[in-house]
């Protein structure tokens, strides 16, 4: 079987990590904001904006790092807008999030046309790419080496971010406050914790993580920006967060699952199957994943009841 051959190759393992990276960043962002009790549905739009600004600024400064900084700044701005509308002006956070997504979808094309004189792709800009890293020693190990070494630096940062988010949420005062605010805002308020302040911080952190994901897409995964290149990853990230039960580790594994589906879709394009079908794979996996997840919840409850 050709499919099995593909799946059990080291290059496929490498591809999973590569495809997982942007989803993982955004999903970790979803973890933080969700823990604070605000659903950041604007992850998609934030990623898209970050991807664009990363490309533009790296092209002008000839530095991928300045591109990354610009991407993060754009993410902070976007989540600041979301926070301002939902926390200060009391707009429904879902509606504000949808508005930002629509704004990004159109706004990025507009800006792209102004800067690159093209409505589809940024190839006229000479943008930079963030460096790849070869892991010393690890790259000598058979099987493991080819899978884990040689990734874009942001892939390693994403893996590191899993641990950082865990430590932040469960080991620091800020994390305790984020969790308290998300679970019982009145309790937090009654001990003098500024609920809005904590939610601002959570949304900004969430935006920063998502913009790392966006920067990776246009400055690592590929080396250009194209319209709506996030292709629903922000929403897949929300699904990953839900499947991972909102914990950093659970979210990591759920993201890997979606990464697997994405990598499969990419690889199967070499087979003679209509590409439209193959491109559906990640989204179908999302739906199946959520169905399996919720039905396993239901059957677990049933099982307990039968005892």
């Amino acid at each position: 079987m050709k499919i099995l051959e593909i799946i059990f190759s080291t290059s496929f393992g490498y591809a999973i990590l590569r495809v997982t990276t942007p989803i993982l960043f955004a999903a970790l962002g979803a973890v933080i904001s969700d823990k604070a009790g605000v659903i950041n549905i604007a992850l998609e739009g934030i990623m898209l904006m970050a991807a664009l600004w990363g490309v533009i600024i790296s092209a002008f400064t000839h530095s991928a790092w300045w591109g990354l900084v610009a991407a993060i700044v754009s993410g902070v701005l976007m989540s600041f807008i979301l926070a301002y509308f939902s926390l200060n002006l009391k707009t429904d956070v879902i509606l504000a999030g949808i508005a930002l997504n629509l704004f990004s979808s159109g706004g990025t094309i507009f800006i792209l046309y102004l800067v690159a004189h093209d409505k589809g792709i940024s190839s006229s800009l000479k943008s930079e790419v963030l460096p790849q890293m070869t892991l010393p020693l690890v790259n000598k190990i058979p099987v493991i080496g080819p899978i884990f070494s040689g990734h874009n630096i942001l892939t390693y940062i994403a893996l590191l971010a899993v641990i950082l988010v865990y430590v932040l949420l469960y080991r620091t005062p800020l994390g305790l406050r984020i969790r308290a605010v998300g679970e019982n805002p009145d309790a937090a308020d009654s001990v003098g914790i500024g609920v809005n302040k904590i939610r601002y911080i959570a949304l900004l952190l969430s935006g920063i993580l998502a913009s790392f994901g966006g920067a990776y897409l246009s400055m690592g995964y590929v080396s250009w920006f194209s319209t709506n290149m996030t292709a629903g990853r922000g929403f897949i990230a929300l699904a990953a967060e839900a499947m991972g039960k909102g914990t950093p580790l659970g979210t990591f594994f759920a993201s890997l699952l979606f990464g697997f589906a994405g990598a499969l879709a990419n690889n199967l394009q070499s087979l003679r199957i209509p590409s439209e079908f193959i491109q559906m794979i990640p989204y179908i996996v999302t739906i199946i994943g959520l169905v399996i997840y919720s039905s396993s919840q239901v059957s677990r409850i049933k099982k307990v009841k039968e005892q």
């Binding site: 969790r179 308290a180 679970e183 019982n184 009145d186 309790a187 937090a188 308020d189 009654s190 001990v191």
Partner: peptide, 10 residues
């Protein structure tokens, strides 16, 4: 308070 201001999971 009458309704306790506690975070249940902590």
């Amino acid at each position: 308070h009458q309704h306790f201001m506690l975070v249940p999971s902590l």
